[in-house]
Amino acid sequence: MNVMRLATRGARPVILGCRSYQPQSSGNSTQWQRQEPTRDFSTGNVYLDVTIVVGSGIGAASSIPTVLSVAGFTEAGIAAASLGANLMSVSAIYNGGGVAAGGIVAGLQSAGVLGTSASTQAVVALGVSAVTAITGYFF
């Protein structure tokens, strides 16, 4: 669809790619004028931005046991009729009747029973903080 066909849809701004174009009427013709983005990608407070990024990482790392438990990887084993049970069933089907040692299901069950190490929690915290910072910058 070309820009002139978009112009007939009204006086709304049109976004093409990452650039915004506003219709500018002069006489009988409509011109399209490119507008530079004016969006500020931060809250304007550096301390608040850092707190959001660090807090998201700490929150994600501290919620690992809860997430595993809700998914069915409990200290007593894999809970019946849970996501963990479904993953175990699928893993057993694809592995010829048994769950592979060192696989995803075995690793999640181990983390559910024994907990996660400090290094695992640090990796999760850094990963979530990085994703939070990147999405906060671009979106």
Rank of each mutant, 00 (worst) to 15 (best):
N45D: 12
T51Y: 05
F73Y: 11
A85S: 11
A111M: 09
V128I: 09
V50K: 05
G107Y: 09
L108Y: 10
V90K: 08
G115W: 10
V54H: 00
A100L: 14
A122K: 10
F73H: 01
V54P: 00
V123A: 07
N45V: 06
S82Q: 02
G72Y: 00
G115M: 13
A125H: 06
V67H: 09
N45P: 08
G55C: 01
L126I: 13
L48H: 03
G127V: 04
A81F: 05
A133T: 09
T66G: 04
V131N: 11
S62M: 14
G112W: 14
A130R: 09
T116D: 00
A79H: 05
G102C: 11
T43S: 15
V54L: 07
S82E: 01
R39M: 15
V113W: 03
S91L: 01
G44I: 04
L87F: 11
A106I: 04
M88T: 06
A130P: 09
A111E: 04
V46P: 01
L68H: 05
Y94M: 07
G59E: 03
S69C: 07
S69D: 06
G72E: 02
A125F: 14
V105R: 04
T43F: 09
T38M: 09
A81V: 10
V67Y: 02
T74L: 09
S63C: 14
L68C: 06
L68N: 02
T132M: 00
A122I: 14
S63D: 14
S42K: 13
S82R: 00
A76F: 08
G107T: 12
A61P: 06
G107A: 08
A122S: 13
I93N: 12
A122Y: 08
I78M: 01
I93R: 14
S63I: 07
V128E: 05
G115S: 06
V50S: 07
I58R: 08
G107S: 08
V70S: 02
L108F: 13
N86K: 06
G102I: 11
Y47T: 13
G107C: 04
G57N: 03
V113A: 02
T120G: 02
V123P: 01
S117G: 03
T38G: 08
A111Y: 12
Q109F: 06
S110A: 15
R39E: 15
S91A: 14
S119I: 12
V131T: 13
S42W: 14
Q109P: 08
A76Q: 12
T66R: 03
G107Q: 11
V123I: 11
L114P: 00
Y47F: 15
D40F: 11
V124D: 04
Y47P: 06
I64E: 00
S129A: 09
S110W: 13
T43R: 15
A122E: 12
A81N: 10
Q121D: 15
S119F: 13
N45M: 10
G44F: 11
S62T: 06
G55I: 05
I104S: 10
G59F: 01
A133H: 01
D49N: 07
A125G: 06
V105W: 01
Q121A: 12
S117A: 03
T116M: 07
Q109A: 12
V70I: 05
Q121S: 15
